[in-house]
């Protein structure tokens, strides 16, 4: 049981962060704090994807041939370098195969799955845009209401709604008469 828990430590951490973020986003009355919670929530999703992609001992997804170390050690010839260049062209053609875990022939390197990393670059951009728009809206709220507390804003709106309804009722009464 303990092993089960410990083996998945990363996921527990992510779930914890995610729930904290979600709770702040719902429960905080301060609008800025809500956005902080939202940011935490989104960031924990990024961690989730990244930890899906991880492999023990994995590095960056750059493939090289068997003689990679050698040619570097001897610092030798031109020919080996062009060989690598040729290889590289091959890999990019087989990039998909490599990404899905089929090792292309003659290549070494254990690497983390690059796709979730790339997806998360996009998600980071989306998150930044959302936060920026959210903060801009909060700035406007501060200008219009003079506060960033959600409950104060709600009570102000309620007062407006009540006075509107009252004037409405009066108008319709006047109309009936």
């Amino acid at each position: 049981m303990l092993e089960f828990v410990l083996e998945r430590g990363n996921y527990w951490a992510i779930i914890g962060l995610m729930m904290i973020g979600l709770y702040i986003a719902f429960a905080a009355t301060n609008l800025i704090k809500r956005l902080v919670g939202l940011g935490l929530f989104q960031t924990s999703i990024i961690l989730f994807y990244i930890s899906l992609a991880r492999i023990d001992g994995g590095t960056a997804p750059i493939l090289y041939g068997k003689d990679y170390g050698k040619s570097k050690g001897h610092g030798d010839d031109h020919g080996a370098a062009t060989d690598h260049a040729g290889d590289a062209v091959d890999h990019s053609a087989n990039g998909y195969e490599a990404a899905t875990g089929y090792a292309a022939e003659g290549l070494e390197n254990i690497y983390s799955n690059p796709l979730p990393h790339v997806l998360m670059l996009t998600a980071i951009v989306v998150g930044v845009a959302t936060l920026a728009v959210g903060l801009a809206i909060i700035v406007r709220i501060r200008e219009a209401y003079g506060t960033v507390e959600a409950d104060e804003i709600r009570s102000m709106d309620l007062e407006v709604a009540i006075s509107e309804a009252a004037s409405e009722a009066e108008e319709s009464k006047a109309g009936a008469v």
Binding site: F41, T130, G134, I141, A144, R154, D157
Partner: peptide, 18 residues
């Protein structure tokens, strides 16, 4: 009141997309 409405929508919408 459009501003709190938009803020609320942003919060809910982002949680949904997440």
């Amino acid at each position: 009141r459009a501003l709190p409405a938009a803020g609320n929508y942003l919060l809910m919408g982002t949680i949904g997309a997440s």
